[in-house]
Simulated assay, not measured.
Amino acid sequence: MHTPALTRRVKEELLAALRRAAESTTARAVLLLGSDKAFCVGQDLAEHARILDEAPEQALTTVHEHYNPIVLALEEIQVPVVVGIGGAAVGAGLGFALAGDVRVSARRAKFGTAFTGIGLASDSGLAYRLVRSLGQARAMEMMLLGTVIGAERALELGLVTEVVDDDAWAERAREVALRLASGPTSAFVAAKREVRAAASGTQELPELLEEEADLQNQLGVTADHAGAVKAFLDKRAPTFTGS
């Protein structure tokens, strides 16, 4: 994202890019970066204020038109999604960041909800992600009290994967994405599926065990698995092709 505030144009460009990534048959990882100033601070309020003046009934149709589809597009990407966070991740921006799989944060980054501060609740799946990441009590604190937390605290709470120096976040996020892109893609896709199923709480252990067994059987006949086993026995690093 080339600008931290979400104008209609930015939302449309982001949605189109994410849909291309979700539909790609060759992508092995996806990297989502914000600007150096901030990752994303949510809706562009100047644009929002203009719509409120001109057609208030249309001011929040963007949730159905843009925000929900963006979050669903992120969810539909099967390969690992790495998010690089160089600054503030607020409101919908926090919702987008939490929809990724691995989050690399600059030390200066701040995380907050901001919605109730302008008389709104939340969108972009933010309540859903916060409850699953932090539990109900912490989610309520961030939503109702508008608590803003720093990067180190976000790391302690599990909102981000790694915190690096302010001049290193983009490079580190790219390194992580490249590492994942050169790994066993089919195994990563299956691992994401397993973790999501476990986190959803909709399946009992016997069902999860069956799904794990099915996925292991599928992965057991891949070239990546056979090559990695041979590499281990030969005492050398494996080379993964994603097949």
Rank of each mutant, 00 (worst) to 15 (best):
T161F: 10
A198P: 09
Y128V: 00
A89V: 03
A46G: 15
F115V: 00
R196E: 11
P80R: 00
A173H: 06
L134H: 08
T222A: 11
L18M: 10
D167G: 09
S122G: 10
A38N: 04
T161A: 13
V221W: 15
H48W: 04
A168P: 04
G117A: 14
N217R: 14
K192S: 14
E141Q: 07
W169V: 07
G87F: 08
M1G: 12
R20L: 11
E212L: 11
R172C: 12
S105D: 14
E141R: 03
S182V: 01
T3V: 10
A27Y: 03
V131N: 04
L215Y: 07
F96K: 00
T62C: 15
V163K: 02
A213N: 08
I77P: 04
L178N: 02
L159S: 01
S35N: 08
L94Y: 01
F240W: 12
G84D: 09
D214E: 15
F232Q: 11
A106T: 10
A106Y: 08
G84N: 07
T26D: 10
R28I: 07
S133E: 06
A139P: 14
T7I: 08
G150W: 09
A49M: 14
P238A: 09
L219G: 13
G91I: 00
E210N: 11
G117I: 01
L219W: 07
A231C: 13
L178W: 03
F39E: 01
G87K: 01
F232H: 09
G146D: 14
Q136I: 07
S105F: 12
H64Q: 08
E194S: 11
A199M: 09
T25N: 15
A17Y: 07
F188K: 04
G95E: 00
P69M: 05
K11F: 06
V160K: 09
M1D: 10
Y128H: 03
P69Q: 07
E162T: 00
K192W: 15
R8G: 10
E212A: 14
E175F: 09
R153P: 09
V160M: 13
Q58G: 10
N217D: 15
G84V: 00
D44I: 01
E141M: 04
K230Q: 14
A5M: 10
A213F: 06
D167F: 11
E23V: 00
G84H: 04
G34F: 02
A97P: 12
V104L: 12
A139D: 12
G227Y: 05
P80E: 06
S133M: 08
R8D: 13
K110Y: 08
K37T: 14
A191L: 13
A21N: 02
P80V: 02
